[in-house]
Design a protein around this nucleic acid. Sequence first.
DNA 1: CAGATCACTAAGCGCTTGCTTAGCTTGGCC
DNA 2: GGCCAAGCTAAGCAAGCGCTTAGTGATCTG
Lengths: 200, 200
Amino acid sequence: MSAITSPLVWEHVQPAAARRLLTGAIDAFAERGFQATTTRDIASRAGMSPAALYVHYPSKERLLFEISLYGHRAALEILSEADAGDSPADRLRGMVSAFTAWHAEHHTIARVVQYELAALSPEHLAEVATIRRAISAKVENVLGDGVSDGTFAVDDLHGTTLAVLSLSIDVARWYDPVRRAAPRELGQLYADLALRMVAA
Amino acid sequence: MSAITSPLVWEHVQPAAARRLLTGAIDAFAERGFQATTTRDIASRAGMSPAALYVHYPSKERLLFEISLYGHRAALEILSEADAGDSPADRLRGMVSAFTAWHAEHHTIARVVQYELAALSPEHLAEVATIRRAISAKVENVLGDGVSDGTFAVDDLHGTTLAVLSLSIDVARWYDPVRRAAPRELGQLYADLALRMVAA
DNA sequence: CAGATCACTAAGCGCTTGCTTAGCTTGGCC
DNA sequence: GGCCAAGCTAAGCAAGCGCTTAGTGATCTG
């Protein structure tokens, strides 16, 4: 049922047992949600007894936070790397394409990032919220630049920013790797749609 | 914290106690999610003891199903009523506008409809899924009609349908009645964006 | 090679969960 | 006035929850 999260991306998490717990938790949280996932389920996915989880993480919520924080940082990084090009149009195309493809490719992590915020503690939520604001700001800046140089025509800058983000984010909700197109092609389609949304 | 769901829309649910349980459950599910909501919480929102819930509903899941089914039917109805006008452009504008405004106005029910599908039993999920397919089909038909008469230029019909739906659906995730614009204005903005996405 | 440390398990604690049971009150009806 | 169904509550049950404790074996360190 679940596409097991590739452990390759998580090599910085040491020791290996902690990494197995983390990737197991990602799959479980994405599949059933944080609240419906038991520590026994996470531990058994990592091939351990329930108590072993607490050797590496102080609580189930902390495991969620670690995943959410890493996921948010990865998403922001993807967006920043894609923010390259001479024109606002090129930059927007690159950003929407990369951000959408990331939500498809890593739809398990993305689901945790986008839909499990309410399960975070207030302090952890605040930390993650600053990254979310940076993500929105990145998109809003490109749109603003495009409006300034006349290539984009946008009435409601903040509202349109939200709409562009929605396009990519909602991919995490419905994406099914078995049935749907390749992440890259989806990214290109969505980049095209986003450009048409704002083009002058 | 929660905007209490208007009981006016639910007058067909009898007796009043059953209605109070239903609207209480909507607010609770929207706020914390189905799994994190306890039957004690729902009952206390309705001003009753936990056991009273089972006089009116056989299980917590059944309460969710009733909400989800009614919500899906309402969403489809909104979309069908808005599917009026001479041109595909007018029809799409009306549908996206109404569908978006509904997700903002009724963002509590919409959250349950869009994000709690996994908590439904297989049989109940199947029943709700047929309505979801009808909703997608409605949008895909308008886009198809627009392509046929040359007013729309759409490469990937199915992918673009998903994107148009994502725009409206994702509103339920972020919409905050205190901070954001009126549902109607949001609907008009999004209808405009959707049209630009597909216009020839 | 003793002692400490790390990674782990078996067992289980206190608590909460969805739901049940037994019994009470109320209002309508013959 | 006796009866009954509808709608409710107090109490509680079995199961499962997050997390802790006590102890074990392997590995590293002086």
